[in-house]
Nucleic acid binder design. Structure first.
Lengths: 209, 209, 209, 209
DNA sequence: AATGAATGAGGGTTCATTCAT
DNA sequence: TATGAATGAACCCTCATTCAT
């Protein structure tokens, strides 16, 4: 079951109003968490501002103290969630000893995140249609991280030479689709099995040796 | 540049009204083609029924002679486009001599389709939020085809044993992301290069031999 | 007591939608008449679209079949009322035998109109703040008519030479203020007396002979 | 160019809070001056309380320390401006040697005031729709002054006998319209010429001698 | 006296769908 | 079958005013 992001606003985002009082900070937090749950469960268009404020326990008008529009809070969420995914996956990745196991750890960490936060993860995907620039921003950053890992692995001789952005997009696509299929739609499939098989594809390909 | 699908409705879909008269058939066709362009360009929610009927050159009321609702025509489109993708990619695939080159051909064909019909292709993706069942249907069918190819290849000894659904989802995800990145967002990148690199990943993986 | 303008739409105004059916024509008429009463009685800002549609006996949405916005119908009204004033006053003016009595007839006709349509006349005045261009348009046209009369009178030797636009604006202002004071605010003052005195001012001035 | 009225509150008005401290007096002044500029530039309805407090450099809540409502400050302004007009015009009038030149001086002084304070002058006019009693109050007082002057002139034999309230309203209307047309809308017309021509109308009328 | 967050009624506008012609 | 006017629920957003600090 999706949990409201416990501490949503970690660093200032451009354009985000920073409340001056403690009370204001609590209200902003409540709005973001409520929005995550509502957008996640019902999608952008089916969610009304009143759904968000009702769940957050604040008055309708207070919404506009912190956000200029429904799109505005949506963008803030995407940006926030993008950071959350990265933050959750990073420790797994860093603990891995070499390039190939880094990718395995990234996939495992991502599937885990998506499974726990499945409704909320939809928000990022819906951004493709609600806030395309935020969507592009998220994936360009994500892929840049993957590409950097791959290039590092190649430089260390742990991966074959020449891997780069194209491979990174391919891996991102695999991970996202596997997350959707087995993390969100899945009905109890063994995720470790999925990780193992998908990772073998990435490591060895499909051909016979 | 996206073209209106010239002959959109090829076979009866469940729930779809089949017009009796030639005139009716033309109106239905006009509506579907107009809807593809409008939904593709502006998305489901930003598109009004009047946008569709205006472009189709029919009266507003006539829309409901053919479709029960906005979602209805959207579903019909997704189903239709799903068939189109399959139809366009299939010949490439069938011409390929072995399992690995089949996957290469599928990727190449898909990238080509997406590049030509980029706006329209968005419709399928937006279905995730507008008509999730149609979206699932499309991808389950797509993946089933891929899985069947892989299993066939394994049976023939052209691929390593044990490949199946998980690998098929991974490949689907890869293809879709590469299509979005290089077919839709791309600015003139060499698609053949993308295909070559992505295919090497599928064939050999990232590890050193 | 103000009467709804019996036949409001007499000639096509730019930007005004012209209904294609008889029913549509009736709805448009009903909306304009209702708007005149509501705007006249309560002013632009205190009048809601729903007040207009309720009085007109049509659904809220129908309003937007004919007008793009609240301002839009207001402008249409101003333009329409501007024409009505002219139409009502003109016959009095034309029946007058010479230049001085023309001005007297114009004042008398105007006071009469304002007295009968006092609420509705407020609409034109409020336009100064709601649709300044429409307001300017009305008064520039009105004054142009007065100036033309004066110049004609001077040419015929019925008025002293040199009268023109400045005098026309002065007369317009006099008429409007007298209309407001004695037509709208008035409590049964004898209008003929007002006309007589004001006209003597226009004819002879205040000085001693 | 309109100037913020330097010393706006000169005498206590009914219902107006008179601050005890110097600081309070400054805040009140700042609010009134800011309101004059905002109402003048954007009108009553388009002006928000926050626009006023922002320009005045005080917190939103402080507004209600001094005024009970938006209408309240508007009324206070109208009353204040009414006094200003009178104060500005009076010396010109008093300096004039006889009844006719008094009216000429009044018109000239008024046109001058309106030209310098055009935006702010709109406030008085808008009062017709925002605070009709304040509007009536202003013009009844204004006209009473004019009427008193006329009657005085008649008593002294400088004007023809019998002039009174009707003539005063007529003259007020002329002045106001000429102010709007040549002071506010005008584009550099020679005001002295306007004064001369309008005054000849008042003095001699339009007829031939 | 000042601050600024909180409130919530209200209003304009959209648009999918229905219906009379 | 086609037409286009009619319907009205729904929704986003504003903003005057209140209130806790």
């Amino acid at each position: 079951m999706p949990q409201p992001a416990a501490d949503t606003v970690t660093e200032g985002q451009p354009g985000l109003i920073v409340p001056k009082t403690e009370r204001g900070r609590r209200t902003l937090r409540a709005l973001l968490d409520a929005a995550a749950l509502e957008f996640g469960a019902n999608g952008f268009h089916a969610t009304g501002i009143t759904d968000i404020t009702r769940r957050a326990g604040v008055a309708l008008g207070s919404f506009y103290t912190y956000f200029a529009s429904k799109e505005d809070i949506f963008r803030a969420l995407v940006s926030d969630l993008s950071g959350q995914v990265k933050t959750e996956v990073a420790p797994h990745v860093e603990a891995a000893p070499d390039a190939l196991s880094r990718e395995r750890a990234a996939l495992a960490g991502f599937l885990d995140f998506v499974t726990r936060q499945q409704l909320i993860y939809r928000i990022i995907d819906e951004a493709e249609f609600v806030a395309p620039d935020a969507y592009q921003g998220h994936y360009r950053k994500t892929v840049a991280r993957i590409a950097a890992r791959l290039e590092d692995g190649a430089a260390k001789g742990e991966l074959r030479a020449g891997v780069g952005e194209v491979e990174a997009w391919a891996i991102a696509g695999m991970n996202v689709f596997l997350g959707l299929r087995y993390g969100v739609w899945g009905e109890g499939e063994e995720l470790s099995e999925v990780v193992a098989r998908a990772h073998r594809l990435v490591a060895e390909g499909l051909g016979r040796r």
